[in-house]
Write a protein that binds this DNA or RNA. Structure first.
Lengths: 155, 155
DNA sequence: CCCGTACTGTTCATGATCGAACAATACGGG
DNA sequence: CCCGTATTGTTCGATCATGAACAGTACGGG
């Protein structure tokens, strides 16, 4: 089974020496595959699975301004408007005016939103396990640390 | 009505215990940040930087069918059509008919495409270095191995 | 007190990708 | 030989995030 790479072989995945060692390339590849796999498994919750990270962020940081939330999930302020519009229409999220500053709106999770998060989180952890199959606990810890480092390097 | 729940001070990045330990979440975050950083730095090459990985793949696997290329970069066949249209219009790529099978078209890199790749690859490596700052050689090797494992797990 | 600056959320046009179609072609069992 | 099935590249409508605008609001120096 330790056969050298043969580009003419049947179902072998294509590679390139120039990019096979690049973390930035594999990062993109892994993210695309992971994202698709999660959305392919979890159905029947509307847009919630796609924005589960955001919902968790709102749950654990209640009453934050949209700008901070956008920065936290690495999205534009303008993108978050549409997303929150939909999550609010689905009754998962609530925008409240703050008395001190009439510009900002605080974002809160509704009880329904909390229930959806509680239902979705176990599925996310199952997906996480499928993702990281074959990796030891220390591998996963180093993996996570490396990802955090990348985010920190480019912020 | 709204209790100011903001114990954190100043410019601390928002977090959530539920997702801070999730590789799938951080994977997405890191990829978004990395992608933006690369495109923000490299300018003046049209659409080539965005599809540098694809171009390298074509260069090192000349004459592959579009389907094969699409699978390799984790994109849909239909998405690759538009991409190759543009790269071909820019003179970087060439589609050739194959005599054996009139359905498929082999994709080749033009000499101009080769030159562009040669110009872009050093910048990609500089970006790679910025990405992985603070990571040791073994850290980077394990990082890469973990990313490959993720891709393999979900394929 | 003003006025410029900075920040809020928002709108709109643009580009990228997807998923479901489609015609053309290859191939193999009956 | 024929007909069903699979595969090729392609088109088209829908969805999503972006970046540049915008009006409204806060705030501090002159």
């Amino acid at each position: 089974m330790t056969e050298p790479v043969d580009p003419d072989a049947g179902t072998a995945r294509l590679g390139s020496p120039a990019i096979d060692g690049q973390i930035s390339y594999k990062l993109r590849l892994a993210q695309i595959v992971a994202y698709r796999a999660f959305e392919g498994v979890v159905t029947g919750f509307g847009a919630a699975p796609r924005y589960l990270g955001l919902l968790c962020l709102i749950r654990d940081n209640p009453g934050q301004a949209q700008s901070r939330l956008a920065e936290a999930v690495a999205l534009q302020r303008s993108s978050l408007v549409t997303i929150l519009d939909r999550l609010e229409a689905d009754g998962l999220v609530e925008r409240r005016a703050v008395s001190g500053d009439r510009r900002m709106k605080q974002v809160w999770l509704t009880p329904e939103g909390g229930r959806v998060v509680d239902l979705l989180l176990p599925q996310a952890e199952a997906h996480e396990a499928a993702l990281t199959a074959g990796l030891s606990a220390t591998d996963k810890a180093l993996f996570l640390r490396a990802l955090d480092q990348v985010v920190q390097n480019l912020s």
